[in-house]
Design a protein around this nucleic acid. Structure first.
Lengths: 154, 154
DNA sequence: AAAAATATGTTGCATTTACAACAATATTAT
DNA sequence: ATAATATTGTTGTAAATGCAACATATTTTT
C-alpha cells in the first residue's frame, strides 16, 4: 500500500521548492516595495559582477543559474542602464566578453544594499541566526553533492 | 565599503534557490532516465491528488505552488490521460471542481513510486538521513514563517 | 434589497525561460 | 595538416509561467 510511502508534500524536495519560491516572491515584493528600478535577477547579477570584476558571461551564468542566452539578455539590460561595461578579453586564449561594474552601477548597488539591509535584519527576527546559519551550511553541503549528480548545460 | 557586506552568492537566499534548482533538474532528469511518461509537475499533482482525494483545484494549486490557470492545465492533461477524474461538487456552499485519482492513475503512481524509491535511497547515501531530516525541519519552519510575510495570489 | 466583496475556475496574452542552431575561434585527434 | 571537438556568445523559437480579465455564484456590507 503506498499509503505508507512518503508523499511528495512531505519530502525535502517539496519543502525546498516551496521555500525557494516563497523567498523569491519575498524578494520581488521587496524590490517593488522599496521602489527599486531593477529586476531581481538584474540586481543579483549586478551584485555578483561587483565582487567578480572581470568575470565572463558563461561563468556568471553558472553563478546566477541561468542559461547563456538569458544571462546575455540580463547583461544587455544592465549595460543599457549604464550599470556595467562589457569588453572583449581573453580567457584560456579564447575571446570572451568580460564585464565590470561601473561607477553608477556601484552607487546603485550600494543604495540597494543599504535599503535591503534593514529588511534582512527583519528576517533574522523570524528565525534565529544560528538556525539560519545551520540551514545555510546544510543546504550548501547538500547542493554541492547534488551538483555532482547532474549535468548542467550552461 | 560594501566589501564587508554579504554578497548574494553567500546568502541563504541564493543557496536555497540554487539547491531547489539542482533538485528540480535532478527530478526531471530522473523522469527521463526512468522513461516515465509524465511531466514532473504532473507526477507531483497526481501524487497529491492521491492523498487528498476530493481536493478542489484551488487547494491543489496552493499545494503545488502554481497559479490556478496552470493547475487547471496540468489537470486537463492528467484527465486526458485518464489518470484522474474531475467532478463538480460543493465546498462551503460553492460549486467547485473536485478530483480523484483513477484506478489507472493509481497503478501508474505506484509504479513510478517504486521506480523512484531506489533513487531516493541513493540520495540518502550522499547526505546522512539525520542531516536531511534536520534540514527538512528547519526549512519547513522557516518557510512557514516566511509565508506569513507574503501574499500569495492563488 | 441592492451593492460590494469573495471564491472558484477558465481564457487570453505577455513575459520568462529553456533549448536548439548558429557563428567564431581554439584545442585536440587523426 | 586536416578534421573533429570544445568553448563562448548570440539569435530564434517553442514551451512554461504568471497575471489580468472574465464568468459565475455566494457571502458580506450598507
Amino acid at each position: 500500500m503506498y499509503k505508507k510511502l512518503k508523499h511528495y508534500t512531505d519530502t525535502l524536495n517539496y519543502e525546498l521548492e516551496k521555500t525557494a519560491r516563497v523567498m523569491r516572491i519575498l524578494g520581488i515584493q521587496l524590490m517593488e516595495k522599496l521602489k527599486i528600478d531593477l529586476m531581481l535577477d538584474e540586481y543579483v547579477a549586478l551584485d555578483i559582477v561587483s565582487c567578480h570584476q572581470g568575470i565572463c558571461q558563461r561563468d556568471l551564468a553558472k553563478l546566477i543559474i541561468k542559461d547563456r542566452a538569458n544571462t546575455g539578455r540580463i547583461l544587455n539590460s544592465l549595460e543599457e542602464k549604464g550599470l556595467i561595461t562589457r569588453f572583449v578579453d581573453t580567457k584560456n586564449n579564447r575571446l570572451v566578453r568580460k564585464m565590470a561594474i561601473t561607477e553608477k552601477g556601484y552607487k546603485i548597488l550600494i543604495s540597494i544594499n543599504k535599503k535591503v539591509e534593514s529588511y534582512v535584519a527583519e528576517t533574522k527576527r523570524v528565525v534565529s541566526e544560528d538556525e539560519l546559519d545551520g540551514l545555510y551550511l546544510s543546504l550548501k553541503k547538500l547542493r554541492e553533492k547534488l551538483e555532482e549528480m547532474i549535468e548542467l548545460k550552461i
